[in-house]
Design a protein around this nucleic acid. Structure first.
Lengths: 193, 193
DNA sequence: CCGGCTGCTTGCCAAATGGCAAGAAATGAA
DNA sequence: TTCATTTCTTGCCATTTGGCAAGCAGCCGG
């Protein structure tokens, strides 16, 4: 596993040249996270801008009754961090946990800002990450309030089947906004068809 | 109505000095939007970074069956634009419409980028707007999948009562992810208590 | 002042989802 | 392996939300 993969990831956005991509990648440090371990726990300040090269993670928070609610699934090739905590330097309400053994690369908030300052192309990259996260969430919000649980499940199954190989069903249920009981029944229905 | 209000808005974020705030505000142009008129229509590229000084707006999209779904309410003191369309220069899936007569100030994408380039403090401001929008949406997502329609309605009523003075109930219903019929019944229930 | 909208409510019933508890199956640790 | 824990499923019934259609009220343009 080398930083060349990382450099290619930056370059593939079409926002940075390969030369600059290598320069950026050079600042990152390797980090592995074992299955079930946390990249970030609630109450801490998210300080690692983490490129996930291998493995799967999830983000989860707690609702008003204290139940765990999965808020996102992360797959290889994504940047994983808690946006509000990271940029505002505030305590995170969310946890970031490895669903499988993970490997990847990170820089700190301080390093990120230095790179943003020095390299306008990297600023563009940073903005594109934020914008993509925002617009994906908007899409999900629209689907959540307009489609039934069965439709939402079917879409998730189609768009990210890898998730199912790594997350238990109750985790997926909470992401969909339903109970594990209901998800079980929905799966039974769909199996018939 | 003067640009001084706008300059103060930038300054109040604690990210820019009053001097720089006035310099930024100087670039904005006045724009009024009459009730029911559109700041942005679906299919166009969002090209106005619009500071809403007076009035109320809403964002809406269409679901898979073609029904209107309100995705956001905007009140005075907010920056109104469609993030993905604006930054990626792609066609917007959303509409931005005035719920009341509105007045405010805008700059174009080109102007925004020039300001971002020239003034690091303004870049910070721009980032803070994105981060806030993102984190508000995350909060809303969590509430949507964990609370009942009645609880969601009660919260909206408490946190932004102004919205109710300007938006018809069916618009609010679609924002909450329920039908206008259900909202009517929920209001009846809550009135009893 | 009239007539036609749109917005809001209500009754009746159907569909979707939840709560609880029990049991079966899979998983992980010793 | 064996035991304990977690995950998943299922039955029974309650609650939430939706669909449709009717009716009423308020608003706006002529």
């Amino acid at each position: 596993m080398s930083k060349e993969t990382l450099a290619k990831f930056f370059h593939n956005t079409n926002l940075v040249s390969m030369t600059v991509a290598r320069e950026i990648a050079g600042q990152f440090s390797y980090k592995a996270v074992s299955k079930h371990d946390f990249l970030l726990t609630e109450g801490k300040i998210s300080d690692e801008y983490y490129f996930l090269e291998k493995g799967y993670m999830r983000a989860f928070a707690h609702d008003t009754e204290g139940n765990e609610v999965t808020t996102a699934f992360c797959s290889p090739g994504q940047v994983v961090f808690e946006v509000a905590s990271f940029f505002n330097r505030t305590r995170s309400m969310e946890n970031l946990q490895a669903l499988t053994d993970c490997e990847g690369w990170f820089i700190t908030y301080k390093q990120l800002n230095e790179l943003f300052h020095a390299l306008p192309e990297f600023r563009e990259f940073g903005r594109s990450i934020l914008v993509k996260g925002f617009s994906d969430l908007k899409t999900r919000m629209l689907i959540t309030i307009t489609e039934t649980a069965e439709e939402r499940y079917a879409q998730l199954l189609k768009t990210s089947p890898e998730t199912f190989q790594h997350a238990p069903l109750k985790t997926i249920a909470s992401y969909l906004g339903i109970t594990d009981t209901s998800l079980s029944r929905i799966r039974k229905e769909l199996a018939k068809k």
